[in-house]
């Protein structure tokens, strides 16, 4: 999903120069074909989001108020936001690290490459809830497969959900599985774009493998990694099913906080509208920066 968005950004400049043989300029009547899709996303996306913002300023009785927002502060909004941020950053670092290794192996022609590629791509097809379930079994509060290892090695078992930070760590770790394959594919496409002659030149100059990695691979991959990370960041921030299944509402992330308020009562729904509004503005601000900066960057190249 995000992989394709990334490709969209990447091909921005090529699209810009694309010159078909067909007239494309004054066929604005064809916009009629796009209208159903536009109406669809407007009615089911923009309208509800606007409704959310509007209702965040209403009390259950229907009068205008800021009390939903002040209640949120009382219920730990700030901590939820910070925790969400921590999980996002942690997950991105872990995924990037693993994905870089995978991509570097995937570009190498070796026997078993196809098998390897298939194996690491499998999690992409696994339902988030299934993946969450598996990790909840691995990191059970009592027992669990991770603790089996630890006990077998002669250590004391760990209660994974005892503290807020260990709970968040479990979420970060569980998240690598489903999402790393896509990051790996993005980096793979970036790596396959690097010309082998650069490496040959560096080799003849006597640069070792480490030198080559730090002076060629990383700098050349940096723009792609930046775009990939920025785009993935949006979905990390919205992470929902995984924490819900593995750690429940404790500690709450911003999405689970919203869901909890939504579930609690018809009055607390208004809190979730307020939290939604905050999340919405964070994400939209972030996304605009990404598209704007990312688009501009690829334009320049």
């Amino acid at each position: 999903m995000y992989y394709i968005k990334f490709h969209f950004l990447q091909t921005f400049n090529r699209i810009k120069d694309y010159d078909g043989t067909m007239p494309k300029s004054h066929n604005l009547k064809y916009i009629a074909f796009i209208i159903p899709a536009l109406v669809y996303v407007s009615a089911l996306s923009i309208f509800p989001a606007a409704l959310s913002v509007y209702r965040s300023f209403l009390s259950p009785g229907g009068s205008y108020t800021f009390s939903n927002y002040s209640a949120l502060l009382h219920y730990g909004l700030v901590k939820a936001l910070i925790d969400t941020m921590l999980v996002s950053i942690g997950a991105l670092i872990l995924q990037l690290f693993l994905a870089l290794f995978i991509a570097m192996i995937m570009v190498k022609p070796f026997k078993g490459n196809r098998l390897f590629s298939s194996l690491v791509i499998i999690p992409y097809g696994i339902s988030t809830v299934v993946s969450a379930f598996i990790f909840s079994q691995i990191f059970s509060a009592v027992g669990g497969y991770a603790n089996s290892f630890i006990v077998d090695l002669g250590f004391r078992p760990i209660d994974w959900v005892a503290t807020s930070s260990s709970s968040l760590s479990v979420v970060v770790i569980a998240d690598y599985w489903k999402n790393t394959p896509l990051v790996a594919l993005i980096l793979f496409s970036g790596l396959s774009g690097l010309s082998p002659s650069m490496y040959e030149a560096a080799k003849t100059d006597g640069a070792g493998a480490f030198r080559r990695f730090f002076s060629i691979t990383l700098p050349n991959l940096a723009p792609i990694m930046a775009i990939a990370l920025l785009i993935r960041g949006v979905s990390e921030f919205n992470i929902f099913a995984l924490p819900l299944v593995i750690i429940g509402y404790n500690p709450p992330l911003i999405t689970t906080l919203i869901y909890e308020f939504y579930q609690t009562s018809s009055a607390t729904i208004y809190y979730s509208y307020a939290a939604s509004t905050i999340l919405l503005f964070i994400i939209l601000g972030y996304a605009s920066i990404v598209l704007w900066k990312g688009g501009a960057k690829t334009y320049e190249r």
């Binding site: 067909m22 509800p48 999405t255 919203i258 999340l279 939209l284």
Partner: peptide
């Protein structure tokens, strides 16, 4: 049909809307 530049604007719009958090909507 409408030209690559105009089309890109629509696509950016669609993807931007797509980034709206599911739970918010």
């Amino acid at each position: 049909k409408i030209g690559v530049r105009t089309a890109n604007k629509f696509i950016i719009f669609f993807f931007l809307i797509n980034m709206m958090p599911g739970i918010v909507v």
